[in-house]
Each structure stands twice: as structure tokens, then as C-alpha cells.
Nucleic acid binder design. Structure first.
Lengths: 208, 208, 208, 208
DNA sequence: CATGAATGAGAATTCATTCAT
DNA sequence: CATGAATGAATTCTCATTCAT
């Protein structure tokens, strides 16, 4: 007789509301009532489902992380199973966010990166996502390096560099889209990855 | 008889105050009174010397732009006059900001990038700086490409990619410093640049 | 289940608060917190129910306009149905505001007139009210003139003159009550109206 | 050797500055620095020559009073010396302010009237001016009434009514110029004056 | 669960006034 | 006399959060 709880749905609505508002105003200027309005809900409800505004942001980070995750794994799984192809698929999937994808999601992701600098709680979840992407990318790079008989010593550094590059592309494409050449990202990322790979010396074992 | 103007000093003080506060709180949370406090001034004085808080931010962007500019040109002029060396010097000078340099300046720069997404006025000055850096980097890349007999068609794209990478490194190093491997940036940037260069086909002229 | 809206009451309370404060301090010096205090509410609530302080003023103008309207129409309907009597009733009702009536309302009306000079939004609503009163007065004058076989060409000018006179009386009675003779207004207005009427030439039709 | 004091000149400049600014912003929004700017002086100088902002306003009232005075007396002296003609000249000179004259002066006068409602000090000087005009007008009316053998009992009331009318015309012409018929004031005032005069019974003495 | 009123603590900004030079 | 920097209080407005209904 009791209504089935719709908490999950409501939370998702609210998170979506924050995403929309935050994409165009940033976190600080995304007021609770504007979030509620964007979600089609009353403002009081936001605090019923979330302890605080920061909590909504954390939930949004989780949500976006899942989105990214889904996107990447999809990209990878669809590709041929050679290490090179998998790496390429991963990078493409990433960079594609800047192209097709949800521009709001990208704008939010950039805003979250900025927020992570100051908000401890955001930093924690953001760091977790970054770490995860780093791990994935590192593993892909390692596979390629191993196949090419190269040292894997630097592959975390390489992963960090590529990730930085891609996030930097997001940031600039959102902040100053008119200044950048159209569609430069995709090819450039691949070339930069190649540069990192070929600069890696062959592993000691290979010599034997 | 009249009191001598000291506006320039005061403005500089206030801008420095914003830089300090903004580095650890971001723009929105840098209240006028916190800026004034950091500058050792009364809050009313901030609005005596600046029309608005946004105006202080714009002044800060200008200030940081000059800092960056100085840094880069210094790096370039000190280096050997081969194109490769000049490019290297430029990239090193950039990345070095993440290392030695003023950490507050880097944190501010990242925050400004985030602010540029929403504040038109900030975007304008930020875009100007980005464009300038892009031009410089493009010119350096072009020299190298020309020397190597390669096409210069993509050199703006390459410049954009490298700039994105470096700004992304700033961003991540500020947001999640513990997740990244130490000192990965310097070498990775060089390798990525190399990757971009070698991927460039030789120019038509070379064939003649 | 939901909390019932009480916006209308609150808005009315706030408008009443502004009226009280404004009557003795004017608009500029009627601070939001003084309005809230006069209304027995918290200051934040004022901005919950009104977008801005100016909005409260506009609401007050509407409120006073309705008050005036009610007063005039009441005065007219109660009177005998001869044109002369109706005109007299209208003028009396107007001038009576300066006597009995709500002195706060008169003081506010004067302040609003002053505010209308600079605030576009106030001017718009104020002009609407003035126009309405002008129309009513003009119609009344016309009836009298027609009955007397006089030209109606100037009756808008006459209406404007009488309205000016009455508003001027309000203004002076509020600003310098001690300088004016007591109760001069009522009779003088009638005499002035008479002067305007008798100065009007007979209409062409009368000649036929 | 000492410079001749230029206090009077400076004070006049500052008062003129207030007049200009106040005409379009009102008193409250006429900041000291805007007044100084309009006067082409530094803001500090205002407080050197005036104790407070209110003091400047009082000086402005005096200034405008003198202007009005000059205008009226000029109008009267130029006219034929019949009482009727003198009265007409006075009224014309007054109403002309709304036409030719300095629109800023009229706007200021209206603003001063509004300010007189709340500021004791302004009220005092404003009342003085009103009283003076009232006296003059009363005397003119009396002359006409005496000549016509009418009672002079009501002539202060008549003066008050005509003054109210004229100030009301100023107020409305400044606040809602578009709503009023063009140039209605001049003739209407004369007609209203006539209405007041003819309504006055003949004096007892005449009967003898 | 849901609504939306209510609070109160800041936030940016303005400004009369003072004062060092 | 004159300048313009400096102060600090006051003002409008925003907003996360709480809570009565």
C-alpha cells in the first residue's frame, strides 16, 4: 500500500539537474533552486534526497565517472583485440567526448576538475576516477610496450601524460573553442602516444 | 600639494591578494574582504581601485600572462639558436612552472581557465593569452618542421595539442598531485612533441 | 501534503511595510531590512517574495492605484447623476485624500511621483495611473461641457490642469503643511474647475 | 601674496554640479564624487567647501530660489502696471519654467520638493521659498481683488491653490511628460486664476 | 515523500566622510 | 586650497539549509 520508494529516480533527476546547470554556470553559481528547477522538482526535495549541495556534486562525479567508464569499455570491447587497436579505441573514445558526446558532460567534467582543486570531498572522488583511467590507460600502454619488446618502466608516466593531454583538450575546447583548430585532437593524441611509445627503450629481457 | 597617486602599487597589491586567496579557494570563494585581508588593506579600498571583483580577476590574468610571457621568452633567448633547442627550451620553461615556479601562479592559472568557461570578460583575456602561446609554439614547431623538410600544414594543430597537454598537466598536478608520478611532465612533453613531428609527412618541396 | 502558498498575504504585508516606511523616509531610505521590520518579517523573506526592492515599489504603486480607483468610483457612484454633481464628487474624493484618508498613502503617492522621475519601471506604472485618472476626469468634464453646450476641445487640457493642481496640493501639504492655509483645497479646486469650464467657448453646434 | 579666496566660485561650481546630477538621478543617488566630477573638481574639495552633502543641497535650494525670484520679479517689472497684468506676468513667468527655461532646474525643483518631505533642513529652506512665492502671489491677487471690489479674505487660499497647481504641473511634466497635452499649462493657469477670482464675493465695503 | 516558506549568514558594492600629502 | 587615497558602515541581494504543513 505504501508507495514504492523512488529515491533513486529522484536522485538521478537531481544529479541531471546539477549537470545541466553546472555546465553553464559552474558549481558555485548553480543554486539549489536552479538545480531543482532544471530537474523539474521543488527545491525542498533536493535536501530531502541529499544531505548537502556538495553531496549532489559528489553524486554527479560518480555519475560522470560511470558514463566515461561505460564509454571506454564499450570502445575497447568493440575493437580488435590487438593491443595497439585497443589503445587506439580507448583514446578515441576519450577524445570523442570533445566531439560528439554530451557537451554538458564535458563542460561539467572540466568544472569538476576545477572544483577538485579546493573541495576535499570532490578531490577524493575525482582522484579515484583519474586513478582508474590512469590504470586502464597504463595497462593498455603496457600491453603495447610488451608486444614491442620495450621497457614498461615509464608506462605510468606515459599514461599520465596522455591523460593530461586529453583533459587539457577538454578544458581548452570548453574555455576557448574558437581559438583551437577544428578536430585537431583525435589525430594529435595518437601521434603523441606514438611519440611516447617509440621513445621507450627496449626492455632488458629482449636483449637476451 | 596634492597627494601623489599610488594606484599602481595598490592595484598590484590587490591583484597579489587575489592570487593568494584564489590559489587556495578559487575565484568564487575569494571574497573581497578576504582579498583585502590578504593584501593588508581595507575592503573598501578594493572597490576604490577596481570597479568590480571581476575587474581584479582580469587584472590578475593580465599579470599572469606577463609572468608567463617573461618566463617563456627568457627560456627561449637563453637557449641555443637551433630550432630544436628553442622548442625544447619553450616546452621546458612551460612545464617548469609546474615544478619550481610559483605554485600559486599555477593554481591560479588553472582556476582562471575554469573561470574562462563562464565569464565572458575572463574568456576574452584568457583567449588572448592562449592564442599568444599558441602562436609562439606554432612558430617554433614550424621552424623545426621546415628544417626537417616536413610539411607545416599541421603545425597549429600540433601546437594546440602540446598546449593542451601542458595545461592538462597543470590542472591534474594541482587537482590530484598524489595520483601522478613525480616529474613525469618534462620528458613526456618532449616525447609527445617528437611524436607529433615525426608523424608529419615531408613537404612537397622536398620532392623536387 | 504540501505547504499551502501564502505568497499573496506576504506580498501584501511587505507592500504595507514599504508604505509605512516610505511615507516617512522616502524610497531610497526605506531599506529592505526596515521594510521587513515594519512588516514583522525577516529581511530574507522580502527577496523571497519580490525579485528586487524596486519590485516592491511597483507593487505598492499598483496597490495605491487600486485604492485611489476605489475611492473615486465610490465617490462618483454615490453622487447624483448630473454631470456637475459627478464632477464635484470626483474632485472632492480626490482632495479628501489630503484630509481624512490615509496620510501615509498620500505621502507615499508623493514619493512615488518623485521616484517616477528617475525609475523607468515606476514611471510606467505611475504614468498608467495618471492616464487613467486623466481619462476619468476628462470624461466628467466633457459631460459638463456638452451639457452646457460648450466646446470639448480643451477638456483634456483642463483635466491635466486639475490633476496637476490636486497632485500639487498633495505635494505641498505633505512637504510644508504649516505654510498652507487649512482646508483651502476643496473649495479652490471647485472654483478652478469652474474657471476652466466658463472660459470654454460654446461649441459650433450651438450656433445652429 | 596669498591667493585671493575663490570659495564663492567653488561653491557655485559644486552647487551647479549637484544640480546637474540631481536633475537626472535625484539627491540620494547623486554621490559626492559624481557631483565633483560634474563640477570638474576633485571629490575631496566638496567637503572642504561644504560641511556635508546636505549642505550642498541647502545651497542649491537657495540658488534655485534666487533664480526663481529673479525670474518672477523680472516678469512682473516688465509688465504693465495694472494688477491684472502683473498677476498674469507672474503666472506666466512661473509656468514658463516648464517650457523654455532650464529643464534641469525644474527637475531639481521637483526633486527638492520630494526631499523636503523628509529632510528637516531642506524642508526649512524649501518652506521659506514657498512662503515667499505665496506672499508674492497673494499680494498680486489681493490687488486684483481690491480693484474688482471683492473680498480679500480668501486670497491666501487662492494663492496656495495656484501655487499648488503650478508645482503640480512641474511635477507631472517632469515625471510623465508624454501623458500630458502639450502646452496646456499656460492658459489653464490663467483660467483657473480667473475662476478663483470671480468666485470671490464682493467685499462688504463695496456695498456701502 | 513533497512543497515552498522562512531564516540568517554572507556576498559585492556604494558612499559620505576623513585625512595624509 | 587641493588632491585623491582610505575607511567602515550600510545596502541590496543570494543562497544553503531548515522546517511547518
Amino acid at each position: 500500500m505504501a508507495r514504492p520508494p523512488n529515491t533513486d529516480e529522484r536522485r538521478a533527476q537531481i544529479v541531471a539537474g546539477l549537470m545541466r546547470v553546472m555546465a553553464e554556470r559552474g558549481y558555485e553559481r548553480a543554486s539549489i533552486s536552479s538545480i531543482a528547477e532544471a530537474a523539474g522538482l521543488s527545491s525542498g526535495l533536493v535536501h530531502y534526497h541529499f544531505k548537502s549541495k556538495l553531496d549532489v556534486l559528489v553524486a554527479l562525479v560518480d555519475h560522470l565517472a560511470a558514463l566515461l567508464e561505460a564509454r571506454f569499455s564499450e570502445g575497447i570491447s568493440r575493437s580488435q583485440p590487438t593491443p595497439q587497436a585497443r589503445l587506439k579505441a580507448f583514446l578515441e573514445a576519450h577524445v570523442a567526448l570533445g566531439r560528439g558526446a554530451d557537451p554538458a558532460a564535458v563542460a561539467c567534467w572540466v568544472a569538476i576538475g576545477a572544483e577538485a582543486v579546493r573541495q576535499k570531498q570532490v578531490q577524493v572522488v575525482y582522484a579515484r576516477v583519474v586513478e582508474r583511467r590512469l590504470d586502464t590507460l597504463q595497462a593498455l600502454l603496457r600491453d603495447v610496450l610488451v608486444e614491442q619488446g620495450r621497457s614498461t618502466l615509464l608506462c605510468r608516466a606515459h599514461a599520465a601524460a596522455l591523460l593530461s593531454a586529453m583533459d587539457g583538450m577538454f578544458q581548452l575546447s570548453v574555455a576557448v573553442p574558437d581559438v583551437l583548430p577544428r578536430g585537431f585532437a583525435s589525430r594529435a593524441v595518437m601521434d603523441m602516444a606514438q611519440g611516447l611509445l617509440v621513445s621507450t627503450p627496449s626492455s632488458g629481457r629482449e636483449h637476451s
